[in-house]
């Protein structure tokens, strides 16, 4: 079993912590993990891409190959389409619906949604709104992990434990908010 994932969004949205939590949960489930990310220049409000590979066997490449991603998890709708070349023909896109419009030529949002809907089985959810209901907009990455959780090779409990471990230092209320955000994503239809 190998599960390949593309995790993407815009610099500052929390893509790397999204990747870190799935990686942590997978490791606690005794799976091999390779998680590749890029720091520096590319983080300054630009497009951000992380590769995450989870397997019960040996993993050679840190990078996902084209046509082999089981899942694209995106913090932003246009970004969810940028890396479709990586997606398997039957792969799934899970994305936040709220756009980040920090460029002048952002495409027509309805056209973006239509393309996302064209990927069969795709999920486009109002992650930021759900996170805000759970207590903080900043937890929208946890909403996405929740929404993607049925497709991940780890169970919900390991993911929740990874969320607890990650936010423990920030206090119980931050842990609670993030767990609530996770559940909101998981229960979303």
């Amino acid at each position: 079993m190998t599960c390949n994932m593309i995790l993407c969004g815009v610099g500052g949205q929390g893509v790397l912590s999204l990747a870190a939590i799935i990686a942590k949960a997978s490791l606690s489930s005794h799976l091999n993990v390779r998680q590749s990310e890029v720091h520096g220049m590319s983080q300054r409000g630009g497009e951000v891409l992380a590769h995450l590979r989870i397997s019960d066997g040996e993993i050679y490449s840190d990078l996902v190959s084209y046509g082999t991603a089981d899942l694209i998890i995106s913090m932003e709708p246009m970004e969810s389409l940028r890396y479709l070349e990586y997606l398997k023909p039957d792969g799934i896109v899970v994305t936040a619906a709220e756009p980040v419009v920090n460029i002048g030529n952002y495409p027509d949002l309805e056209a973006v949604y239509a393309k996302i809907a064209a990927v069969s089985g795709s999920l486009c959810l109002k992650a930021e709104a759900l996170a805000e209901e759970a207590g903080s907009k900043r937890a929208s990455n946890m909403v996405l992990i929740g929404a993607a959780s049925p497709y991940l090779p780890t169970d919900a409990e390991s993911l929740k434990q990874a969320i607890r471990d990650t936010f423990a230092a920030k206090g119980e209320s931050v842990v609670e908010t993030n767990l609530k955000a996770f559940e909101a994503g998981r229960n979303h239809q």
Partner: peptide, 15 residues
């Protein structure tokens, strides 16, 4: 790979 043309709805997002 997933065969959907997205060239009309994706633009670069430079840092």
């Amino acid at each position: 790979h997933a065969a959907i043309d997205v060239s009309d709805v994706t633009v670069p997002r430079p840092p």
